[in-house]
Design a protein around this nucleic acid. Structure first.
Lengths: 235, 235
DNA sequence: CGACGACTTGACGTGTTTCAAACGAGGTGG
DNA sequence: CCACCTCGTTTGAAACACGTCAAGTCGTCG
C-alpha cells in the first residue's frame, strides 16, 4: 500500500478502429431512457483492443462514453508509476463524467471493448432543452458520486480481506450470474483499484478460498460459496 | 489504517436552533448564480453547535445544504466504530448532494456552524423549469465527483507524508491566507479523512515541522514554510 | 489548583509491502 | 508431440510503515 516505486509498463497500443455515425445497438429504455436515446441518436461507436487507450489524462474532455460491450478502467498515474483505478465500467455503464474541461483520469479497455461516444457540448445543448435528460445526467453523476463515497471507506478504513470482499460483492451485484463471476480484469487491476499490491490481492484470494468463502476454478472465475461471510467482511 | 476496533464516543448533542423562512445572507453572484439565488430565496437557515448532527446516515434525504459559516464533516461509520470522513465543507460550500432517497453519510458541524437548507424536491422542480440552474447543479455534482476521484488516489496509493501534504495543500487552496491555515478540525478528523490514525497524523505533523516544511505556532495553526516540498510530496 | 480534553511522544506489534523465485496456462516453432 | 518461451499468477521470506497501547504534555475552564 505504501510507496510502490516500481514503474509499470506503459500501454502503448494500436489505435482504435473508428466507425463514425453508427447507431449504437438498440438499448432497452430502462432507467435512463432519454440518455439512452441520445446515445443511440448522436452516438459514435468505437472499438478498442485490450489495453487500448480510450482517452488520456489531461486531454480535452470532448465526450461522454457508454460501454456497449467489454470493460473499461479509468485511472490516474502518480509520477513514480503508482496507479489508482477509480472504477471499472462494464456493459451499459456510462463513463467520462466530470466537470473539468480536461480529463483528470485516463481510460483504457480492460478487454476488447466497444464504446459509444457522445459529444459533451451536443449533449449539454440537448439537456438545456430537455429537462428530463438534464435530470438523468444529474442523477447519473450523483449516483457515481455516491458510489465513490462508498469506495472511500473501503480505501481509507478497510483491511485487505474487507477490501476484496467489497470488490467481490460489487462485482457480483454488477455481473454476477448464479453465484459466480467472470472477472474481466487482472489481479494487478484489482490491486490498483483496492489500493493494494498484486501479491496481497493474490494471497487474499487464496485465503478466502482456503476459508471456503469462494472457489477459484480459474484465476478469472470466482464462485461464491459463502456470501454471508463476504457480507460480514464488508461492514 | 487496519482494523481500528476502538469505538469512538458518539456525539449526542443539543438539537439545532431552527430559524424558518429566513433569508440566507446575501451572497455575491459568483460561479453558481442561480443556485445562490435559490438558496437565498427558498433556503432555511439553521444553527448547529460544535459536533451537532445535521443529518444522519439512513435518514430520508430531504435537503441540500450550503455552509454559511463554520465547517461541516460528512462521514460514514463502520459497525466497529471505524470512521471515514468523505469531506470537509467550509463557508460557501454545498453539501448533501447525492442521488439516493436516503443519506448515505452523516453530517456534523466541526465547529459552531450556520447552514442554509433547501428542499430537494423544490429545487428539482425549479431546475426542471430553469435549465441554467439544472446545469449548475449538474456541474456542482460533477466537480465534487472530480474532487473525490482525486482523493481516491490519496487514500489508495499515498503514504502518510503524502496524504498530509495533500490535505495541507487542499486546505491552503480553500482557506489559506498568506501562507497560513487555521484548521477548523481536530487531529482525529484529519486522521479519519486521510485514512490514518491520530498518532500517525500527529507524528507526521511533527516530522514536517522538523523538516522545516511547515511551522506549528499552535496545533490548529499551520504556516507553510516550503510549499514546494509539499507539492513534491503531493505527486 | 485540579480536572478535562486534545495533542504529542515512546515502545512495541503486525499487516502489508518488497524482493525474489517458482508455478501454470497458452502459444510458437522445431 | 515436446521443448521453449512469455505473461500472469502464486508463494515464500524478510523489511518496514503504520497501527496499537500506554504514558506524558499542554492549554483551557471552573
Amino acid at each position: 500500500m505504501f510507496a510502490a516505486v516500481a514503474p509499470r509498463l506503459s500501454n502503448k497500443l494500436p489505435k482504435p478502429s473508428l466507425v463514425r455515425g453508427c447507431r449504437a445497438h438498440p438499448v432497452a429504455q430502462e432507467r435512463y431512457g432519454r440518455l439512452a436515446v441520445a446515445f443511440e441518436t448522436i452516438g459514435c461507436t468505437m472499438n478498442f483492443p485490450r489495453n487500448g487507450e480510450i482517452y488520456g489524462e489531461g486531454e480535452t474532455a470532448r465526450s461522454f462514453y457508454k460501454v456497449a460491450s467489454g470493460a473499461v478502467r479509468t485511472y490516474k498515474l502518480l509520477d513514480d508509476g503508482r496507479r489508482q483505478i477509480s472504477g471499472f465500467h462494464l456493459a451499459g455503464d456510462i463513463f467520462g463524467l466530470g466537470a473539468g474541461a480536461h480529463y483528470q483520469f485516463s481510460a483504457e479497455a480492460v478487454a476488447a471493448t466497444t464504446v459509444v461516444a457522445v459529444d459533451r457540448g451536443t449533449l449539454a445543448k440537448l439537456a438545456a432543452r430537455d429537462s428530463e435528460l438534464a435530470s438523468e445526467l444529474w442523477t447519473l453523476t450523483a449516483e457515481e458520486l455516491d458510489h465513490l463515497r462508498g469506495l472511500m471507506t473501503t480505501l481509507g478504513r478497510k483491511n485487505a480481506h474487507e477490501r476484496l470482499a467489497a470488490f467481490l460483492l460489487e462485482m457480483t451485484r454488477r455481473i454476477g450470474a448464479n453465484g459466480a463471476i467472470e472477472l474481466p480484469m487482472s489481479r494487478q487491476d484489482i490491486a490498483d483499484y483496492l489500493g493494494l499490491t498484486i501479491e496481497t490481492v493474490s494471497r487474499t484470494f487464496t485465503q478466502l478460498e482456503a476459508e471456503a468463502v469462494i472457489e477459484l476454478p480459474s484465476c478469472r472465475r470466482v464462485v461464491l460459496k459463502n456470501g454471508g461471510a463476504l457480507s460480514r467482511l464488508n461492514d
